[in-house]
Simulated scan of single mutants.
Amino acid sequence: MGHYCLQECLRWWDQHLKGIETGIMDEPDLRAWVNFPGAPSPRHEDRPGRWVAEPGWNAGGVEVLSLYPGENGLTDKPSKAAITLSSPETAGWTAGVWCGYGAVPDGPLDQNGETGLMTIFETEVLEEGFDLLGFPLFHARVACDTRQANVAAVLSAVGEDGRATLVSYGVLNLTHRASHSRPERMPLTEPQAVKIQLNACGQRVDKGQRLRLALSTAYLPVIWPANEKATLTIEPGSARLDLPVRPGRDSDNELAPFPSPEGASPATIRQHARGFYDRRRHVDLGTGVEINSRRSSIGTETHVHTGLEIKRFSNERFEIHPDDPNSAIGTCHWCQSYSRDDWMAETRTDVSVYALRDCWRIEARLVARDADGVVAERKWTEDVPRDLV
């Protein structure tokens, strides 16, 4: 909600802390934003859409549209054929960062980049549009040739120009198929019931678009790979995607608009060196190793009201070979520095995680400095058992 949240919070606190009648308890419990269709982009300056309201999150009124992936795409009838999944470990590179804020281009890319990496199913061109609001669910009975494996389910909307915009995704470690607190190994080749809850979404799907479901056994860098390369077999007729379709309501047009955004005046900052954000994908054509990297810096700036000079830099790198889950390495380097007059404090951290077959190997280094030099330095290595992860 951005800065709208400030006024809504104030109304809530005035009602419940001060006893001031603000009318907030007479309004719907849930107000949600539904995005209008848009082209894929790692950063949106604006996302057109509209507000809708519900009396509660599980208040009913949402219809379920069930679609079935199979040999004919994504249709309204269960498939008669089995689906086999065994993805390159590089699948998922278009997903964007796990928790992006939208201030830099760290969002999902055109999902056509997953062609050949994920197994894709599409509807025919839709003859009518509808709104999605809630959690899409993917159901299947899955057999696995390893004791632990991952599954990713990705929902996209394909425009008339062929570009695919990510709507939602969900991932599941199959050892968590029955419980997150009590994971269990997969029985070899014996089908198990699996349900994957995709992230909550609010999305308008227009007439003329198509819906796409992409499935894979990898989704780096959002999730780490399993310790073995797995082949999954989905029983014929068992795969189903349930979509939460919200019918239009006249009451949506009667919602009171939010007031204009309000916020405190930003602090005065003097910029000495400009910041940057750099996101790249590199494929070594000789070895096949793929690297996804992100570098960012705020530059050098002084907060005028305190005289504090701040520098901040980060470099994150994730690499893997498409055929080897145990080749995955994630490395993060962070540097933060604060200074004023003759005082200075700086920390530098380097952490690397290696996805070995039997453990996660963590190598770390921490250096702290002040104006006189190094005041603390530590290096350490730790092996953490994979324990079904």
Rank of each mutant, 00 (worst) to 15 (best):
L6Y: 10
R11W: 01
H16V: 10
K18I: 03
G19A: 10
I20M: 08
E21V: 09
R31Q: 10
N35M: 15
P37D: 09
A39K: 10
R43H: 07
D46G: 01
R50T: 11
R50G: 01
V52N: 06
E54V: 05
G56N: 11
A59V: 02
G60V: 05
V64K: 09
P69N: 05
S86P: 02
C99V: 11
C99F: 11
G102I: 14
A103N: 12
P105L: 08
G107A: 12
L109D: 00
L109N: 00
D110I: 05
D110L: 08
N112A: 01
I120N: 00
L126C: 08
E128G: 06
L132F: 06
G134R: 00
F138E: 00
A143L: 04
R147Y: 03
G159W: 04
T165D: 01
T165I: 12
T165L: 05
N173R: 13
L174E: 02
R177K: 10
A178M: 07
S179E: 07
H180T: 11
E184Q: 15
M186Q: 15
E190F: 08
Q192K: 08
V194A: 07
I196T: 03
R204S: 05
V205T: 01
V205D: 07
G208I: 10
L213N: 01
P221K: 01
P225D: 03
P236V: 02
L241C: 00
L241G: 00
P244M: 06
P244A: 09
G248Y: 13
N253C: 08
P257Y: 08
S265K: 12
P266G: 04
R270S: 09
G275C: 15
G275Y: 07
H282L: 09
G286Y: 03
V289C: 07
S293R: 14
R295A: 13
S296H: 05
F313S: 05
F313E: 15
F313Q: 13
E316V: 11
E316I: 12
E316H: 08
E316W: 12
F318S: 14
E319P: 04
D323C: 14
D323N: 13
S327A: 12
H333M: 13
S337M: 09
S339C: 08
T347Y: 11
R348H: 11
Y354D: 08
Y354F: 14
Y354C: 09
Y354A: 10
A355T: 14
A355R: 04
I362N: 02
V367Q: 14
A371T: 11
A371P: 06
V384H: 05
